[in-house]
Design a protein around this nucleic acid. Structure first.
Lengths: 155, 155
DNA sequence: TTAATTACCGAGTAAATTACTAAGGAACCT
DNA sequence: AGGTTCCTTAGTAATTTACTCGGTAATTAA
């Protein structure tokens, strides 16, 4: 798994899209202005998102982007994997003698951890995040008092 | 949260240390050879780990590294935060009008998600990973049939 | 006391990634 | 026709990654 600032930009943009795409498409210019991300960088990110069918573009005036699927069918893992190319871990592929199993064991343990994180992010959808925003109905900044977590996991 | 290949190297190295550090210190040369990470890069990583007291170095022949704390008191989040400088998200700090709350809402939602991932990784310790390796007692490579996850969370 | 071994320290660096600029073409609307 | 917006490609400065090199300091063994 790979969770970098690039993936964070993508999640933020998709969240903006989910929040504002209820009535009509959202332009990249809007997202750019809303979230403070450069337009061309958004275009790069959305090229990747479009390739994975996570968004659908509509050209011409009045155009913009829609979510490619309902918000409850788009997970955070989907978004991150779309833009942050999934780097397969340096697994010992039969070659190399695995240092008597030791090295292989370490790799396998990390691999399990990585998969667990992935499954964790798969269980959280855009709809979960939006729903959480709705129920709070907050508009102000800096109210960090609330420490309630998302509680959006199935398990 | 930031989960890059750098953090992955650190987790892998610490896992190696937890597995092999039972009887005597482990040298960086060993880890380097075991895990296929360059010695100098390990030195950089361990400088950061040492600064956070996650490891303790012993110089001279027969020296090497110990874990700085018991393995069950070192979380994956600890390790990642030590080497991957925690990049605080571009939060709207009072300045900027937050686009009528919209931008702020998105930020706050991502912030919650980020915190949730952090708490998730805080609940998994090195000891959990080692224990999982022990109970399987596996030595071979490539047995990807087993899909059981770690089951190491408190919640 | 000398040599070997290891942690420690700092400068430098090629390659990759990040985040962005620039410049246009393609589809769509009025 | 002309403006809007997506879409595409190329290039690029800044940063990060992962590493090399050359040393110093502490400790042990000969």
């Amino acid at each position: 798994m790979r969770l970098s600032t690039k993936g964070r930009y993508a999640v933020t943009a998709m969240l903006d899209l989910a929040l504002n795409g209820q009535d009509g498409p959202v332009t990249l210019s809007d997202i750019s202005e809303n979230q403070g991300i450069s337009l061309s960088y958004l275009e790069q990110l959305f090229a990747a998102l479009r390739a994975r069918k996570l968004v659908r573009g509509v050209r011409g005036p009045g155009g913009g982007y829609f979510l490619g699927r309902p918000a409850d069918e788009i997970s955070i893992a989907d978004i991150i994997c779309a833009v942050d190319e999934w780097v397969e871990f340096t697994r010992c592929r039969g070659k190399e003698d695995c240092r008597g199993g030791q090295r292989c064991l370490t790799h396998s343990l990390w691999d399990d951890l990585s998969r667990q994180i992935y499954e964790f992010l798969t269980d959280i959808t855009l709809a979960d995040l939006v729903a959480r925003g709705m129920e709070k109905e907050q508009t102000g900044c800096g109210n960090k008092k609330e420490s309630a977590t998302l509680e959006s996991r199935a398990a």
